[in-house]
Amino acid sequence: MINWFYFASPATFYRLAGWMAPWFFAAAAILAVAGLYVGFAVAPTDAQQGEVYRVIFIHVPASWMSMFIYFVMACYGGVSLTFNTRLAAMMARALAPTGAMFTFVALWTGSFWGRPTWGTYWVWDARITSELVLLFLYFGFIALANAFEDPRRGDRASALLALIGVVNLPIIYFSVLWWNTLHQGSTVSFKGTSMHVAMLWGMLLMALSFWMYSVGASLTRVRAIILERERRTHWARELQFT
């Protein structure tokens, strides 16, 4: 049986994360090349939207990751509040900038898809507005986590904000059903999809790539956070950096 407490030690996890991160970055790069190849060379031109639909190969995966990362961040926040674990709080902090980056990419690419298809870069539509709220939640989390001199107080305050902000995730997801929105409904669901198979594969490969990248980036960031927090400990000072 795996001793999870052993891996919850920052000293152990620092080494484990350092070993894992390059593999996740390599997987992300390979999947991105495959996804872009399928998206631009294999997937056909959309009958209605023309070529601009190819924005979906980054817009949809970025949107998925923006919500998924927030959910995982809130879970880590919940674990850190409940069990007072240092590593969980550090992981929540490590995820936030990557989540904010994907939320920005989702909003930006959506805007540049909206101009030629809807005729406008921005509209205060329920889906888009709730995604913008998600970006502000990420900014709030990062600001609150760094607002205290004592990082543990910052951990607790930001974890609470992350948990409260989870309420926004179903609002984003179901906004296209609950309100009459300009944004289209879900094209892909667990029940199936109406998309061309090459379009779907291009999107799924890019989603996997973004997922692998998120893991690699958060593991790399958590290593820096661990070093910042543990710099006065014996094990950190004994590390050999190459």
Partner: peptide, 20 residues
């Protein structure tokens, strides 16, 4: 026709990842 919108989307995503 759509090259500008595609380029702006993919370039922004690439810059965001590079910046991170």
């Amino acid at each position: 026709d759509h090259l500008f919108y595609l380029a702006m989307s993919y370039a922004a995503a690439a810059i965001a990842v590079a910046a991170e």
